[in-house]
């Protein structure tokens, strides 16, 4: 066998390096799971952070990777939430995990159908269309009050124990362990996906649809695919909220929720998967802290953050994380070792 040329080795190394785990990622997830045991008194807010992180991860998939901006992502969140709540309330599916999956599949179906509305048009049209879809769903949920509980929300759902064993308690202990596990599994899948050829093709479609189709990519099909997947993620996030609170309300579809989500992702930075999670932590902690400090001014602070972001500019916001990422790269001792190894490899006769 002919040994592969150094360039090929280096190329393979470089390509697969992107997908390799960074030490900080291990730290992140160890902390997230350790909180199950180490921060029991904070499980309620941690649960909220977990589903918000998942929701933001969903938006990141379409915005950060495929360039589809949405102001109505709550449509899928609410849809999944109501599915989970209804399944529990009418005792159709008693196993929460199964109900969660059904909520995800339901939201995917909705995502698939509505994806065709976001294929064409500018960012602005997409904002309006997604916003419209969410408003429409909210109105439908309001109209069919006999099923959804209307403006009062869907009350009286009883969530059965996880796997028939772990009861959802009022302190959120089960809820957090459950949510963070779901988040982790879906994160792993998303991580795999964005580092695959499919993920690369999404970035190409985002970067230049004209060229993408000129290399044989069906731009529409890719956008439909990722929109559908992301909708499923959002639906599961909503279902997590519904299950951990045994409640679903019209507010789940609200414009505020979609707008806050966009803010969360902007805070954390789009396009590297962790942005949504970091944004969710910052957002929830800030909300918790500020609303305790000045309850009536909380919306003002959020508004201020938005104004600052608009003033500073979208581009600079997405790059404000770069120094941290560069620092993170320097902290990655394995990368340095690999680089050294690769250059040795290249010098061998």
């Amino acid at each position: 066998m002919i040994p592969p040329r150094p360039t090929i080795l280096a190329a393979t190394e470089w390509l697969s390096a992107r997908a390799r785990w960074h030490p900080l990622e291990f730290v992140f997830w160890i902390v997230a799971f350790a909180a199950i045991w180490l921060m029991p008194e904070r499980h309620l807010i941690l649960t909220e952070i977990a589903w918000l992180a998942l929701f933001a991860l969903s938006l990141d998939l379409i915005l950060g990777y495929a360039g589809i901006i949405s102001l109505g992502h709550a449509a899928f969140f609410g849809f999944g939430g109501y599915i989970a709540a209804l399944l529990a309330k009418y005792e159709i599916v008693n196993e929460p995990v199964l109900a969660l999956l059904i909520a995800g599949v339901g939201a995917m179906a909705l995502g698939f159908v509505t994806s065709f509305l976001v294929l064409r048009g500018s960012d602005l049209t997409r904002l309006m269309v997604t916003l419209g879809v969410a408003l429409l769903l909210r109105e439908l949920a309001n109209r069919y009050g006999w099923l959804t509980g209307g403006a009062d929300g869907l009350q009286g759902a009883i969530i059965q124990p996880l796997f028939g064993t772990f009861r959802f308690d009022m302190f959120g202990h089960t809820g957090y362990a459950y949510s963070v596990t779901v988040l982790f599994i879906l994160f792993l899948i998303a991580r795999r996906l964005v580092n695959s050829p499919f993920g690369l093709s999404l970035m190409s479609v985002k970067g230049n649809p004209l060229r993408s189709s000129a290399i044989g990519i069906s731009v529409d099909a890719r956008l439909v695919a990722i929109y559908t997947i992301a909708a499923g993620y959002a639906g599961i996030a909503g279902a997590l909220l519904a299950q951990t609170t045994a409640f679903a309300s019209l507010e789940m579809f609200s414009f505020d929720r979609s707008a806050d989500l966009l803010l969360v992702l902007i805070i954390g930075g789009a396009g590297y998967l962790y942005g949504g999670m970091i944004g969710a932590i910052i957002f929830k902690v800030m909300q918790d802290y500020l609303s305790a400090l000045t309850p009536q001014y909380w919306p003002f602070w959020i508004g201020l953050v938005l104004v600052v972001i608009v003033l500073v500019g979208r581009d600079r916001i997405t790059t404000w994380t770069t120094p941290f990422r560069r620092l993170a790269a320097r902290l990655d001792w394995r990368a340095a070792r690999r680089a050294a190894a690769a250059s040795n490899e290249g010098q061998k006769p």
Binding site: T12, A19, R192, L193, N195, S196, P197, F198, S201, I215
Partner: peptide, 20 residues
């Protein structure tokens, strides 16, 4: 790499890491 993988019809591969 993208162009080659699309040509080979492997563009929808979402479980395989780029470069593998």
């Amino acid at each position: 790499g993208l162009a080659v993988s699309e040509r080979r019809g492997q563009g929808l591969d979402w479980w395989r890491i780029v470069g593998s």
